[in-house]
């Protein structure tokens, strides 16, 4: 992973130190500013992903119809789906690539936070020292003031307040972010989305129990900034009229979707899965 993260490290560390020096040697202010900047700078990477998700949501009726029509012919089904995506101008990888591109940036940010808060000789020497040992401006700032409220940002928060806040804000942030699955995806995708909706906040909360609390503060700020930017993205992007997802406002689309022919859908599959999926979508629509 180092080869992927390392190119971003000098930028992250120096930016953290720059803001730390500029704003009264407050690590939390420095962290908040840089988090906001990074999140805002990565919005252009997020937009294609979200546009793609919304387009896919709009196409769900057609996608479902194709899947049912060619349920027994996987190759044909894939061909038709790809054709549909092409015609709609959707690149299936368009959603993943931007996310993959920003991963090293995020990981470099994690590492920069941890290394900036180093309080062990090895961490300071091999970590932060690698980037700022020659800097006249930043060398005198070491060690950074890691105190914030009741916290020492360099060590885990033993009151467990931050891990709870991380879990809560992660959950809220996910609720606000549309995905292909949540905005009208099929049953399987929705099931996965729901599973992630619960397990992701728990996992992040668990991670922050053991990590430096500075990282937890970062997660919280990042989630809050993310929710703010998401609010504006939601306003900027056109609302989809689809299958009961949060982006859509009604279940109109699914009702108007072409019904699969009896021949195209296996009897049992139709009798079991379709009614269940419809009712579930309605249920989700109500919950939201």
């Amino acid at each position: 992973m180092d080869w992927l993260i390392e190119p971003f490290m000098p930028i992250m560390i120096n930016a953290l130190m720059f803001f730390y020096r500029l704003f009264g040697q407050s690590f939390v202010v420095s962290l908040a500013l840089l988090t906001a900047i990074v999140r805002i700078l990565t919005v252009p990477l997020m937009l294609p992903m979200q546009k793609s998700a919304r387009k896919q949501a709009e196409l769900q009726p057609q996608i479902q119809a194709i899947r049912k029509k060619y349920a027994k012919n996987q190759q044909k089904q894939n061909e038709e789906l790809m054709k549909l995506y092409r015609e709609a101008g959707i690149n299936p990888m368009g959603g993943c690539l931007p996310m993959l591109i920003q991963l090293p940036i995020m990981f470099a940010f994690y590492r920069a936070i941890v290394q900036a808060l180093a309080f062990k000789p090895g961490e300071l020497f091999f970590g932060l020292g690698k980037y700022i040992a020659s800097s006249a401006a930043f060398s005198t700032l070491v060690p950074l003031n890691s105190r914030f409220l009741w916290l020492d940002l360099a060590i885990p928060d033993r009151t467990y307040i931050l891990p709870v806040l991380v879990g809560l804000t992660t959950w809220l942030s996910q609720k606000l972010t549309p995905s292909t699955a949540s905005s009208g995806g099929d049953d399987q995708a929705q099931a996965m989305s729901q599973s992630m909706m619960l397990t992701m906040p728990l996992m992040f909360a668990f991670i922050t129990i053991n990590y430096a609390s500075g990282l937890a503060v970062y997660f919280i700020i990042s989630n809050l900034v993310g929710m703010g930017t998401q609010y504006f993205i939601n306003r900027a992007l056109p609302t989809t009229q689809t299958t009961g997802g949060r982006a859509g406002k009604s279940t109109k689309a699914i009702k108007e979707a072409p019904a699969p022919t009896p021949q195209s859908s296996p009897a049992n599959s139709q009798s079991r899965s379709r009614p269940r999926s419809t009712s579930k979508r309605k249920g989700k629509g109500k919950r939201r």
Binding site: M1, M106, Y110, R111, K120, P121, G122, E123, L215
Partner: peptide
């Protein structure tokens, strides 16, 4: 994701 997160902040040696 967890593996990646842990790898992302793999700690340098504590000391010498």
């Amino acid at each position: 994701m967890v593996v990646l997160a842990v790898a992302a902040c793999s700690a340098p040696p504590f000391a010498w």
